[in-house]
């Protein structure tokens, strides 16, 4: 008897230790590449530093300057537009997923085609749309010219440029949401559909009361990736306009890059201050998501 309890104890101890051992590499990476840089950014944001010479402590001067910087408000406004319009990719992705969720010959090819924009690089997406909009030879430009007689250079118009870039961003984002919903649809219980059908539900009512509730996990993830995707939109802005014309398509992440790292920037402190603000906005969403996940997990137990 005593021998068996001994061996049980000695087996239990490594068991308590093992999870941490497996987690350690991931946690170390997370610490070095996420946690520490966050605090470093916060620290750098209190300095005036060009990355070469000695840093000078200036307290919250960077933040005060941000409050008085038109470019900051332009970026913030554009980020909000991004956030709102990017949300369209969730219902759009759901529609396409529902449309593709049928057993037809060759459906896999259609699925792949719809998924394609998510697979290609954002840089390529940006270039494709730049040519699409290009004055003189772009497809959309020509089309508008044909219809209205006067072409519109979308990427040169301060009022249209952000929408033009978001349209490019939606293309891969819709594909992403679509794939999330397609996997979600596989898990929809067919007996419930069957039961609902017997009760006479169809069309919108079926979708709204039976299918969508079962897709909640997929919806949650789709919203999370879309919010984060909208807030960190950088590549498309960089590729398509470099923030132009005259800075009107800037978003916070690009503004940060411009100030801290671009050819004419190197204000590390100021860039870090923008990063901190962006992080503060993100943390609102992220903590909301984490809180929901935590609540759901507790509910399950």
């Amino acid at each position: 008897m005593s021998a068996s309890t001994d061996s049980l104890n000695s087996r239990r101890r490594p068991r308590a230790f093992a999870p941490w051992l497996f987690l350690a590499p991931g946690m170390a990476m997370f610490l070095f590449y996420v946690i520490i840089p966050i605090f470093q950014s916060l620290w750098v944001s209190f300095y005036d530093w060009d990355g070469l010479s000695d840093a000078k402590w200036i307290g919250i001067a960077n933040y005060l300057e941000l409050l008085d910087d038109d470019a900051f408000y332009t970026s913030l406004k554009n980020n909000i537009i991004w956030l709102v319009l990017y949300m369209l990719s969730v219902p759009a992705g759901l529609m396409i997923a529902l449309f593709l969720n049928q057993t037809v010959r060759g459906i896999r090819i259609y699925k792949s085609l719809f998924f394609f924009p998510f697979v290609i690089s954002q840089v390529v997406v940006g270039l494709i749309f730049s040519w699409f909009y290009a004055p003189g030879f772009g497809l959309l430009y020509k089309l508008i010219e044909l219809v209205t007689g006067q072409g519109v250079a979308i990427l040169a118009d301060e009022n249209l440029v952000t929408y033009g870039i978001i349209a490019a961003g939606l293309w891969p984002q819709i594909a992403y949401c679509m794939i999330l919903y397609l996997t979600g649809l596989n898990a929809v219980a067919s007996d419930q559909i069957e039961a609902a059908r017997l009760d006479g539900a169809k069309g919108w009512r079926m979708l709204w009361y039976v299918v969508i509730p079962q897709l909640r996990p997929a919806t949650f993830i789709a919203i999370v990736v879309t919010v984060i995707g909208a807030l960190r939109s950088f590549d498309l802005v960089s590729i398509m306009t470099s923030g132009g014309p005259f800075g009107s398509s800037r978003v916070l992440s690009y503004f940060m890059y411009e100030q801290a790292l671009s050819e004419y920037g190197y204000r590390m402190g100021y860039g870090a201050a923008i990063a901190v603000v962006l992080f503060a906005i993100m943390i609102i969403f992220i903590s909301g998501f984490i809180w929901k996940m935590w609540r759901d997990e507790k509910g399950v137990r």
Partner: peptide
């Protein structure tokens, strides 16, 4: 040129 803001120097 009206659309200068949308084009590069090569264009």
């Amino acid at each position: 040129t009206a659309n200068h803001a949308a084009i590069d120097w090569q264009d």
